[in-house]
Write a protein that binds this DNA or RNA. Structure first.
Lengths: 223, 223
DNA sequence: AGTGAGATTCAGGCTTGGCTAAACTTCGTC
DNA sequence: GACGAAGTTTAGCCAAGCCTGAATCTCACT
């Protein structure tokens, strides 16, 4: 009943989950899904019909889709695999953190439950992945802490850098090269107006790093 | 040029390699291939045609197939992945040795070269997997040492148990439960005639273990 | 209420890797 | 040297997932 979930179906579930998280409102549009997955709108539409048949989504034509409870657990299962793998690859094999995403993207679909459990145990049942994203628990609960985008902060703001998207290797390399990682505390020391860069100090370092628009927007912080 | 090798193609290459090893003669028959892969003869036949087109095998209609040089490297690459993974799963994650085969069977197709190398390094570049099978080197050389089937030995024969097929979990559990593993020295203490069991002592243990027909046939030894 | 942009669906196709049934080769035996 | 069994190939089909292009529908705005 749960085994006939192909990689494609898992990818759709994951994408819908992610779009539901971002987009406040309710339903995810078929087009948004298509774009996210790099697939034509027609393909996404037919796949959505199938997902509805499988009980993974609820589809209201012209209104979009939403994950069912079953669909949610499919999505969280894959997410757990993905994030555990990322953590495992970084900690046990020393894969650079800007490259783990692509590896995990492939392996997540082929990880057995047994291996998932052994990996989690080996890592001491971690709760976040190397990018600060929360890892769903074995019984598929997840807590997505509220965060702020760094580019919205004002001069003088201080807090903790908690999370950054794992999907842009460029950004990760930039941060990595400067020794900036999720978990670091920071302090905004300057900010250019009109979408200009933010200047911040991280951890106990004295160095001030410039963080350009897209980067500062991708960095999530808590105060 | 080498990237369009699907999982199915890799499986065929691996199966042909394995059948070439066993069957002394030359070509591997389509039927043998079909049986090995659990596929109909017609399916194997059409796949063989495709493999020929890809330059992976040389096919003489009605006579069988043989791996080309390119096909050989495809096979050895997959075999390296498989055996490194088996070793990794046993050593780093503690997966029981009778279960690693199935996991590796899936993951071998999705392991990047980068991960392959990191795993090999982490393990100290091992030369055999947990079942005693040799692991091809990074430049795809492999040495298959000559071995004897244990069921052909006579009473009094002594040597080293070096290798056992990884594909029968039952046998592996049986051996595992008795503490018998590749690398152990042994001595044949008794043997029933007409294909009856062999009785042998392993390692420094005093215990004599009965090894029935199929099992003794699957165990490979060197004297 | 009309309308156009954007979202959705339909129709028709492609590739992969399977399947069955039927036809064809090969080879050992008489 | 003919014949039948065993082995092999061809022909025709299927499902999954993707594609394009051409309809069609909805919604928000005027």
């Amino acid at each position: 009943m749960t085994l006939e979930v192909s990689s494609a179906v898992q990818d759709y579930a994951k994408a819908i989950y992610s779009l539901e998280q971002r987009g406040e409102g309710g339903a995810v549009s078929t087009n948004a899904l298509a774009e996210r997955l790099g697939v034509s709108a027609a393909s996404a539409s037919s796949m959505v019909k199938k997902l509805d048949g499988l009980g993974i989504v609820e589809h209201v034509p012209y209104r979009g889709v939403g994950l069912t409870e079953h669909g949610m657990s499919v999505a969280l299962e894959v997410l757990r695999h993905h994030r555990l793998l990322e953590r495992f690859l970084v900690e046990e094999l020393g894969v650079p953190w800007d490259r783990v995403h692509d590896e995990a993207e492939v392996l997540e679909h082929h990880l057995s439950e047994e291996l998932e459990e052994l990996i989690a145990a080996k890592l001491g049942h971690p709760t976040i992945d190397p990018h600060g994203d929360p890892i769903p628990t074995a019984d598929l609960k997840i807590v997505e802490p509220a965060t702020l985008a760094m580019d919205g902060l004002d001069i003088g703001a201080a807090g903790r850098f908690v999370r950054v998207s794992d999907s842009d290797p460029e950004m990760l390399r930039y941060l990595g090269a400067r020794g900036i990682a999720p978990g670091d505390t920071f302090e905004v020391v300057d900010k250019q107006p009109f979408g200009g860069p933010i200047f911040a100090r991280f951890g106990s370092s004295d160095e001030v790093h410039p963080l350009g628009g897209r980067l500062a927007a991708a960095m999530r912080v808590s105060l």
